[in-house]
């Protein structure tokens, strides 16, 4: 591995793969046993965070804590004595928050070298950032909570798209019209996305104003489709945008659909599988079969 990855495999407890998966325990009802495992993992995560902060290997640990409703929300820990605020439970396992997305903010960057709690999607996002020269390996300490990712099959990864696949063009257009009507352009989707890192987003440019700032159907289509296109071949499918959308629009459907096209037409390409994977759209090659590029 070209960058620092910490796993909890040393303790023999695995989060997702093998017999100790949450799924396994849910099926066989070994809930108490699972909870003990979760608590052990939480303790181990807190100890790791404390060690990183005390040894100054990291100035900041980004992990999960619980909000007013008991739901996982990002915590920013700079004091080793505060690591007790870090939480790891079933909801954190299921959470679609991508904590790598927090690292782009100026206010967070100021707090020093970060260590961040990641799942498989978080690691893939970080790999894309490396491939796109936004981060150097070693810039960030990854506290890996999913050392052995569930390796879903192709059809499982894109199962959610079946609903759209069965629709006609007209039905799909009607579906998105209904969804985008609710968009009021708060840009939460952009703000949580680890790969939306433009210092000036196209919607914030007004000379010329390429995308209407209006939250009308036209303006909403323009924004959401432009964002999806800009994430084509880059989106790692973490689902943070869907989870963040106050309007409850499943934006992930757009990105997944483009990811499937990428995987189908570019030799099984998946964004961020490893840091050496070259981005399909942002890469120039003289061997490219298209002549216009030369």
């Amino acid at each position: 591995m070209p960058f620092e990855v910490y796993t909890f495999r040393s303790s023999g407890k695995r989060l997702f793969a093998g017999k100790n998966t949450p799924h396994f325990h849910a099926v066989y009802g070994i809930i108490a046993h699972k909870q003990t495992i979760m608590q052990d993992i939480q303790t181990e995560m807190r100890n790791r965070a404390k060690e990183l902060l005390e040894s100054k290997q990291a100035g900041l640990v980004v992990g999960f804590t619980l909000d007013e409703y008991g739901k996982p929300t990002p915590a920013f820990i700079t004091d080793p004595d505060d690591v007790g605020r870090l939480v790891w439970n079933d909801d954190c396992v299921r959470s679609r928050h991508n904590l790598v997305g927090c690292l782009k903010r100026d206010e967070v960057r100021k707090l020093g070298k970060p260590a961040v709690v990641v799942n498989a999607a978080g690691k893939r996002a970080f790999n894309v950032l490396i491939a796109e020269s936004q981060r150097e390996p070693g810039d960030v300490v990854l506290i890996d909570m999913e050392p052995e990712p569930r390796d879903a099959r192709f059809d499982e990864r894109y199962a959610k798209l079946a609903m759209l696949d069965t629709m006609s063009r007209e039905e799909r257009f009607a579906f998105w019209k209904k969804e985008f009507t609710r968009c009021f352009k708060c840009y939460a989707c952009r703000q949580v996305c680890p790969l939306c890192y433009c210092t000036q987003c196209i919607v914030d440019k007004n000379r010329p104003q390429r995308i209407d700032t209006s939250a009308t159907l036209k303006g909403n289509f323009a924004w959401n489709i432009t964002r999806a296109f800009h994430l084509a071949g880059r989106c790692v499918g973490c689902g943070a945008c869907s989870a963040a959308c106050p309007a409850g629009i499943d934006l992930d459907l757009l990105n997944l659909s483009l990811a499937r096209a990428g995987e189908t037409h570019f030799d099984g390409y998946r964004a961020g599988e490893n840091p050496d994977t070259l981005p399909i759209i942002g890469t120039f090659s003289v061997e490219d079969k298209e002549t216009f590029i030369r």
């Binding site: 206010e107 939460a188 703000q191």
Partner: peptide, 16 residues
């Protein structure tokens, strides 16, 4: 400053 670190910088709170 604490709110600054936690805040995403989206407009959701103001729009709802």
């Amino acid at each position: 400053s604490e709110a600054a670190v936690r805040c995403l910088g989206c407009g959701a709170c103001t729009y709802v």
